[in-house]
Design a binder for these strands. Structure first.
Length: 423
RNA sequence: GUGGGUGUAGUUCAAUGGUAGAGCACUGGAUUGUGGUUCCAGGCGUUGUGGGUUCGAGUCCCAUCAUCCACCCCA
């Protein structure tokens, strides 16, 4: 079983028995995003390392210990993308995507890479879908981006998820809040974990997120970011909530949501599925107003989200949701004898050209073996062509469910099957 | 990076330190050209890998790799 040649740790093959699920989910995502008039953008899966260092944040865990870094032959520093937004902002600036006026509305799909310890819902290569809306600071856009995520999850049939939103402020209001947090936590430091102790001076907000029970208890009564927002951020957050209410999208405010990527400000949100285990964030996103200018573009605001397909599919499986229709063959062709086999070759091509999915197994010779194969293929019908039929210029069409069979004239078979399957 | 569980046939799992087995799946057969049900037949697999203890290791010990769950982090 576990032989010499093994797939890299934390990666997985998507086998035929599962790949249709991935196809279904990506198709639904594309459909939903189309209704919001978002266009696809496809960027490379590796970039200069500094693209991620600058955007995601030098001190973030993603950059510090989770990036797949490598040098090319000329010693240039690259990294496999750990997330999608950085590349898109880079491309936005590099290609002047904002030149047409209005908002730039983009979506993307593809693999991301993080050197993490694998776990339920967490992999080293994982597949994300996401959207970015660049060009507006209007809280309506925050709400609309959230609405895309909501529409998507709903369209898949998911029920057990919850939307949590927060405002994490901006460069103007966070310093005051950080100061208040330091002041609040300092007296408790000897009761808190070592991580919290080291983080208090770098990113005091992270103490809110700590899951160590004793820390959690202390964090419960910590001052809330929402009380430290400046007027602009407060109004903006109120606006987002107002639009969400108008759109009738249910949400709860969770002041403890902290995005791990440095570029976020103002709105932060997560769609969470509590039945998922420890990795329960289905979609995470928020606003990133300073990011575009950081890449040398104009000071244009942006907002977006990303989600992982693995968790999405896990969620759907636990809710026992369907992944579209199964793809089964329309026809299994059975031939008996050399002449029928010869004719069958011609027929196969004709039927397939007509858009009909036909299965055939040239390694099975007896009627029995071919019928067995037909049964296993789960095709709806079987065509049986033997010497007798060929001589009579006809073919047998058998309904595999009812067992009923009928003769059809050979020259009419393609046409009548075409009609039958509406192709 | 840390902790705990697991690793035996394609798969799901057995095997008080003493010859490695079963269900399912798979292939063939049960007289002429019809599948699903039933019956019969067909399995030597470096017991993940490398060491060690022992007369003897799938079983005990160590290491390593992989996997699962959690911490952490996040999608």
């Amino acid at each position: 079983m576990a032989g010499k040649y093994q797939i890299p740790r934390g990666t997985f093959d998507i086998l035929p028995e599962d790949s249709y699920k991935w196809q279904y989910v990506t198709n639904v995502f594309k459909e939903v995003v189309r209704t919001y008039n978002y266009q696809e953008i496809i960027t490379p899966i590796f970039e200069k390392s500094e693209i991620f260092e600058r955007s995601v944040g030098e001190s973030s865990d993603i950059v510090q210990k989770e990036m797949y870094r490598f040098q090319d032959k000329k010693g240039r520093e690259f990294a496999l993308r750990p997330e999608g937004t950085a590349s898109i902002v880079r491309s936005y600036v590099e290609n002047n995507l904002g030149m047409n006026g209005g908002n730039t509305k983009l979506f993307y799909l593809g693999p991301m890479f993080r050197y993490d310890r694998p776990q339920k819902g967490r992999f080293r290569q994982f597949y994300q879908y996401g959207v970015e809306n660049i060009g507006s600071d209007n809280p309506f856009i925050d709400a609309e981006v959230i609405a895309i995520g909501y529409s998507f999850l709903k369209k898949l049939g998911l029920q057990n998820f919850e939307l949590q939103i927060n405002s994490i402020g901006c460069a103007n209001c966070t310093p005051n809040y950080d100061k208040a947090l330091v002041k609040y936590f300092t007296p408790y430091l000897n009761e808190m974990c070592s991580d919290c102790n080291t983080r208090i001076n770098k990113k005091p907000k992270r103490l809110l997120d700590c899951k160590v029970p004793s820390c959690k208890k202390i964090a419960q009564n910590a001052p809330s970011m929402l009380d430290y927002l400046d007027n602009e951020c407060r109004d903006h957050f109120a606006g987002v909530q107002d639009f969400l209410k108008k759109m009738e999208i249910p949400f709860t405010i969770n002041p403890k949501i902290v995005r791990g990527l440095d570029y976020y400000n103002k709105t932060a949100f997560e769609f969470i599925d509590n039945n998922l285990g420890a990795q329960n964030t289905l979609i995470g996103g928020g606003r990133y107003n300073g990011l575009i200018s950081q890449f040398g573009g104009k000071d244009v605001p942006g907002t977006g989200f990303a989600g992982g397909f693995e968790r999405l599919i896990l969620s759907m499986e636990t809710e026992e949701l369907p992944f579209g229709k199964e793809q089964l063959p329309d026809i299994f062709l059975v031939t008996l004898g050399q002449k029928a086999f010869n004719y069958g070759n011609k027929l196969l091509l004709k039927l397939r050209d007509a858009g009909i999915c036909v299965e055939y197994d040239p390694d099975k010779e007896t009627m029995k073996a071919q019928m067995k194969a037909a049964d296993r293929s789960r095709s709806r019908f079987t065509l049986i062509l033997g010497e007798d039929e060929l001589a009579g210029n006809k073919i047998i069409l058998k309904d595999m469910k009812s067992g009923a069979q009928q003769f059809i004239k050979l020259e009419k078979i393609v046409e009548s099957l075409k009609k039958m399957f509406k192709k």
